[in-house]
Design a protein around this nucleic acid. Structure first.
Lengths: 141, 141
DNA sequence: CTGTCTGCAAACCATTTGCAATCGT
DNA sequence: ACGATTGCAAATGGTTTGCAGACAG
């Protein structure tokens, strides 16, 4: 999604377009990958020297709530974000904590063909996460 | 798995069988569901009044490491445990935070037929988590 | 103008840690 | 005995909160 589209989306939902929000949207666009709040903050502070962590968290929460990014619980004290919202699964390395985007035929199958047990539930999202050791960490082991 | 089997497993891996560990293993056996550390602690303190949270965390970590239980990252500050390690997926209610065990045909399919991108990786586990609103919370909404 | 958003610093809280005493083997 | 484990209390660290001032619409 283009930056402008994201901004229009937020505007249409009643959010104010502050320079901090624009900066973070741009950062997420320019740095594909899986940044955490800390990393977003480090980039943001260069575009906007007075920005605070509280604002970063605030903006990330808005973006997540509006379905613009996905949060990934990597481990107890590491939450990363994924600005690619196309259906895909993740691999998390238990050693280096890196997150890999993994295309998965099953991801879409799982969302389309829900288990009977979920018939009465409202299913909003699916997380399909493999964990283990990435190829680099596997060698070093 | 029977309590005795779990104890034998731990013993065979060099762990000491302390009454605290036995108490927690029994608690997990007797209270199916998805308790958190706090809930385990509340039960444990009745069997063993001097037990501390640190010990509960210690034991849960051992059990998780040895594949006897699974940890579920429900939300930022809520981690629950599942003592059922048979292959199945989870549904987490975004409102009441309850965890539901969901049988899933795809869970096993995902583990057996790994995406090509994971060929060089060591895959140790899979999490398949649906999120949304459970039937009760859906009504109240 | 008006109510939302930001930045600061302090608060939060589940989890972890250091360490002396205890206990399993 | 000996080293693993416990319990306590303090520390940790990512995230949240309260609030006064700034600012978008």
């Amino acid at each position: 999604m283009e930056i402008k589209d994201t901004i229009d989306l937020l505007k249409s939902r009643g959010y104010r377009i502050t320079p901090q929000r624009v900066a973070i949207i741009r950062i997420l666009k320019d740095h594909e990958g899986h940044p955490g709040a800390e990393e977003v903050f480090r980039y943001a502070i260069q575009l906007y020297p007075n920005i605070s962590m509280a604002t970063v968290y605030n903006v990330m929460e808005v973006l997540e709530k509006e379905g613009i990014i996905r949060a990934i619980a990597v481990s107890k004290n590491l939450r990363l974000y994924d600005s690619d919202i196309k259906p895909h699964s993740h691999f998390i390395c238990n050693s280096c904590r890196k997150v890999f985007d993994i295309p998965s035929n099953y991801y879409e199958a799982c969302t389309k063909e829900l288990p009977l047990e979920l018939a009465d539930f409202e299913v909003d999202s699916l997380e399909l996460i493999y964990k283990g050791l990435c190829s680099d960490c596997k060698k070093t082991k």
